[in-house]
């Protein structure tokens, strides 16, 4: 199964998202802030990153920019978890280099559809 990095500082939101994704069979790595997230990407090489934008220590935009400017990690898709549609977070997220965004509260089917578009060869990986 693909490995996902979930970056979210709010413990309840993180636990919730992690539990639901694990139930679906994803392998999950967690991070609480942007700095840990960048380190986790280097260490665990996840297939995709779900990144909250309002994070302590290093915010999601900066973390994404860091990842996207590093050749080793630039290819890893980053999905922004933003506040709802009207917020400027969405524009900032895309400008920072996020590949797509999902507004909170997360609609799981929608999130899965987006993950699907970035990990189309999920089946192939399973074979490996």
């Amino acid at each position: 199964m693909p490995k996902l990095l979930v970056v979210e500082d709010n413990e309840m939101n993180r636990t919730m998202l992690v539990r639901r994704l694990k139930r679906l069979g994803f392998e999950i790595v967690e991070a609480e802030n942007g700095r840990d997230a960048v380190a986790a990407v280097h260490q665990h090489r996840p297939d995709l990153v779900l990144m909250d934008m309002n994070l302590p220590t290093l915010d999601g935009w900066t973390a994404t920019r860091t990842l996207k400017s590093d050749l080793c990690t630039a290819a890893t898709p980053v999905i922004a978890l933003t506040a709802h549609a009207m917020s400027a977070d969405r524009e900032h997220a895309l400008a920072a280099g996020c590949n797509d965004y999902v507004t909170k509260p997360i609609d799981l089917p929608q999130l899965l559809a987006i993950i699907e578009t970035f990990l189309p060869r999920k089946a192939d990986k399973n074979v490996q």
């Binding site: 939101n13 919730m16 998202l17 639901r20 909170k104």
Partner: peptide, 20 residues
């Protein structure tokens, strides 16, 4: 509104999880 949404996300999320 922002502060209210965080716990609300929990309520919605956990009720969805419970439904599952």
């Amino acid at each position: 509104s922002h502060e209210l949404r965080t716990p609300l996300n929990g309520i919605i999320g956990y009720s969805e999880m419970l439904t599952e």
